[in-house]
């Protein structure tokens, strides 16, 4: 995973709450077996609508999504994160994220910056007043800046450290392989396996 310290890019105001993962990418777009090419499915239903924010020229090349609360609810599909990243997004700002979405984003290097809803509203106003305004996000000091408006965001310390170091979870876990072996030695014999039926 690529290390993340700071990012500056066009901010996109998405004035909707409860943006679920079926809206981020509908199920019919989940059939690819690679991690790329999902940008076509991003907000697929809304992109038919000319007035949708990403269809406006000023926002088309946005990379910082500023959304309403409860972003990423619903399905566990990591495709939602891939679709956002394949499109070009590096940061999502919201007052509240769904747990699985936030976890998936952290694994892929998409920054989920949690701000107060009042700050989100402030940024929306700035972006709508002057479409194409850049938003600067700094993970080291956990700040978001749009024009003269500066605020802080929160993210858990561990995810922040992993993002800043660009670390891969599996490699980190495999450092503890001996402890996994030891744990496995203590599991009761009756715990089920998928390969052996006991009764039936």
């Amino acid at each position: 995973m690529e290390a993340f310290t700071q990012h500056t890019g066009i901010g996109v105001p998405l004035r909707r709450s409860n943006v679920d993962t079926d809206q981020i990418i509908p199920a019919v777009y989940l059939k690819r077996v690679s991690r790329t090419g999902f940008e076509d499915g991003l907000f697929a239903a809304w992109r038919h609508d000319e007035t949708f924010v990403l269809n406006q020229e000023a926002f088309r090349h946005g990379s910082v999504l500023v959304a309403g609360p409860d972003f990423g609810t619903g399905s566990s599909r990591e495709h939602a994160v891939w679709a956002l990243m394949n499109y070009g997004f590096r940061v999502v700002i919201s007052a509240r994220f769904a747990d699985i979405f936030r976890g998936n984003a952290g694994k892929q290097g998409l920054l989920t910056a949690e701000c107060e809803q009042s700050d989100v509203e402030q940024i929306w106003k700035i972006l709508e007043h002057e479409p194409g305004t850049e938003v600067a996000v700094d993970l080291a000091d956990m700040t978001v800046r749009a024009k003269d408006f500066v605020t802080t965001f929160t993210i858990d310390d561990y995810t922040r450290w992993r993002l800043m170091e660009g670390l891969d979870d599996i490699a980190l876990t495999l450092r503890h392989a001996a402890e996994i072996d030891a744990f496995e030695g203590t599991r009761p014999a009756w715990k089920p396996t998928t390969t052996e039926a006991h009764a039936g």
């Binding site: 990591e78 979870d169 980190l172 876990t173």
Partner: peptide, 20 residues
């Protein structure tokens, strides 16, 4: 609980998950 694809890979490789 449900997990994303990166976590699926993590469980396949290690049979564990880092969780709070």
């Amino acid at each position: 609980f449900g997990i994303g694809t990166s976590e699926v890979e993590h469980v396949l490789a290690t049979q564990t998950l880092p969780l709070r």
